[in-house]
Amino acid sequence: MKSIKTFSIALVSLFLLGGCELNELDNYDGPDASISGAIYDQETGELVQQDIINGMQIEYIEHGFDNPQTQFMVVKNDGTYRNNLMFSGTYTIRPVRGNFVPVNSEEVVVSGATTKNFNVQPYIRVRNVQINKKGNKIVATFNLDQTVTNKVVRIGLFAHREPNVGQPLNSVSSLVNLNEVTNDVTQYRLEINLDAYTSALKAGNEYYFRVGALIDAPEAKYNYAPPVRIGI
């Protein structure tokens, strides 16, 4: 009886395999390489701060396919990125829709642990940032050093409990529309009055504050200074 059972199972498997060509197994290797790097300011060598949500992306297209799809990586707020699940091969790669002057695509050969950094010209450098709690206000002062002749649309001070704070992720923001070309000597000042946001910014907790400025260019994202953690 048992042999009949074994025999029928074997027979069934045989038919199934034969019927659906399942003997052609997926025999491709998995991802075997990684890529990492960062977006650097070509002049100062500093990391260019980004947004992880709705921020810039790195576009990459793998070579060797007829109709390849464009793939995307996101960049962390500090300007670094990493993808540990890459296939070895040649790629056309380009950082896009960022807070810097658009750059050309490059070819990169990815194998093993590959590092690829991008040197860019950020639209705006946010400098001399001071963010402090003064009385019941958070006060930020800073200068803007813009590298292009476009207008600066607006500046903002953003607050959130996560260090990924920015324009797309904030519980409180203070925005000022500038719509002007800035110079690097004017000091800008933004405030958040804590009394007005007692439910969003609770006393006794720590929050991250970050200032940013947006240039008037197609698809531009905010340029930022690194976030500052303040207990209120």
Partner: peptide
């Protein structure tokens, strides 16, 4: 029942 399955599979094939 088993013969039935067998017949069916031959049919599929």
């Amino acid at each position: 029942y088993k013969y039935l399955i067998l017949a069916l599979l031959i049919g599929v094939f």
